[in-house]
Write a protein that binds this DNA or RNA. Structure first.
Lengths: 157, 157
DNA sequence: TGTCTACTTCAAGCGCGCTTGAAGTTCGTC
DNA sequence: GACGAACTTCAAGCGCGCTTGAAGTAGACA
């Protein structure tokens, strides 16, 4: 081991991040994290990778794919904490995304509320049935994360 | 066509439900919907399948797998609208699930809020970093949908 | 020096939710 | 009765996010 703190082995990084080594190799292959190699070819990770991994995990919880997370990560420094200026737009974009998700769930919840008493699911009247709402908003990807057109919180939902 | 209204072809059901025919065959294979067959072997669907499909789509939006949706469907009648007594526990279970999801998203949102100004993602202090919270609650499956132990809304969240 | 664990690559596999394609059949209409 | 669109089955494939396994190598410690 002799962890030297900034040269974590893959096993150490796995233990600290809670991810499997195989997942870390996969992430590295996707470019989400980077490593140096020892003379013998083993990976050594800078502690800053823990931050990137935390970012990725948070991104997944927001519903981003690894690819999308990678695009967002590409705008942050690899080796040290982002500055407020770097981080703020990303965080704000995530908050908007989260807000949209919450709004959608609340809508669904209200619709269910309307159904609870009636056992309806009627073809004509049940709101669950005719979700002509903003559901499909999740579509294409995360271009918005890169600073373009953030998704408006569901208009009329 | 001659739709006779209660004997929808797969194409008609696809058109009305917004799902692809291939998806409908797949759902049938999974037991989510049922059909009769014509003398020649073609599927004919009762309109009530539209209700089941709406249910499945709603279930997916709540984050259930098709398998879980099928388990919930199994408790509702196949050929007509559920009674209030049949529907209410399912709807309430979904609402609890939705509430838990909303709570989790709100927690994440607050954490991001804490990070926005600081650009932190600090190893020691950032809340995003140390999500020792209720995230993993999604685990096993939807036994709760069947009436057992509904998941408490995230305790301390 | 030897041992043993942790690492390496590469290819394949898995679970989910479907889609695609090939080859053949049925249905509704003219 | 013939035509064309819509259907049938079956097997394979895909995209995502990994995991598993085989075969071999490096690194830490006694």
């Amino acid at each position: 081991m002799t962890p030297s703190a900034d040269r974590l082995t893959i096993g150490e990084l796995a233990a600290r991040s809670g991810l499997a080594s195989s997942a870390l190799r996969y992430y590295e292959e996707l470019g989400l994290i980077t490593s140096q190699r020892t003379a013998g070819g083993q990976r050594r990770y800078h502690r800053a990778m823990l931050r990137r991994l935390a970012f990725v995990r948070a991104a997944q919880r927001v519903g981003l794919s690894l690819d999308e997370a990678g695009q967002a990560l590409a705008r942050l420094p690899d080796d040290r904490a982002p500055t407020a200026a770097q981080w703020a737009p990303v965080a704000r974009a995530w908050q908007r995304r989260i807000d949209a998700q919450i709004a959608e769930l609340q809508l669904l919840r209200r619709k269910l509320g309307g159904c609870v008493g009636c056992g309806c699911l009627s073809l004509k009247t049940c709101a669950l049935y005719n979700p002509d709402d903003t559901a499909a908003a999740h579509g294409p990807g995360a271009r918005w994360l890169l600073g373009d057109t953030p998704p408006e919180p569901p208009a009329r939902a």
